[in-house]
Amino acid sequence: MFDLSGKTALVTGASGGIGSAIAKALHDQGAVVGLSGTRVEALEKVAAELGGDRVHVLPANLSDADAPADLVKRADKAMGQLDILVNNAGLTRDNLAMRLKDEDWDTVLAVNLTASFRLSKACLRGMMKRRWGRIIGITSVVGTTGNAGQTNYAASKAGLIGMSKSLAQEVASRGITVNCVAPGFIATAMTDVLSDDIKENLLSGIPCAKLGSPEDIAASVAYLSSNEAAYVTGQTLHVNGGMAMI
């Protein structure tokens, strides 16, 4: 099940906790994987962990407008074609709306949403020709529920869901599916720094009573990438331990 031999995948934000787990899961299923991100050393480290010749490091700074098209070109060149795109790169600039700077709104929307659209657009041509493609956006539970202090982030993640549904309708007849995975609270470097009090409070709202792991997210991406998920499109798979049942 979920065999990805002969497929190629580009994962953005691949040096992060969730991104590297996604890259590993796709690689484990047999895919050739392109790792993108801004931190070259961290990407090289993930590449070394995966090992072998089915991995490529493709650094890019997605806040540049031209970067997405250029990245897809380089991914095509390195891997021969691009079958699976995982829009995982994202950043936060949290603040209460009344204190949020325009610049922090713009930056979050530019990387989380606009770059994801441009990357998706750039890889459609090849996917349409081959009549096979997977575009997967890593959104967030807060894109659906909202979260105080994250107007920009939640808007970008909700935007990703709307974009994916629309794109899914455009290209479904060509064998291309477009879906999202929406993590809840996942144990990463970002949640490690939270105090015990805050963690306890957080867990009380999660029926599974624990944080998710990056591997929980990666497994969902591997499924949506596979042939077995060919009839699933325009969907958002919520992986959140039951904290929000949507």
Partner: peptide, 9 residues
């Protein structure tokens, strides 16, 4: 409309 995009390609 998608056919016309593919034709141009």
């Amino acid at each position: 409309s998608l056919d016309t995009v593919e034709l141009v390609m």
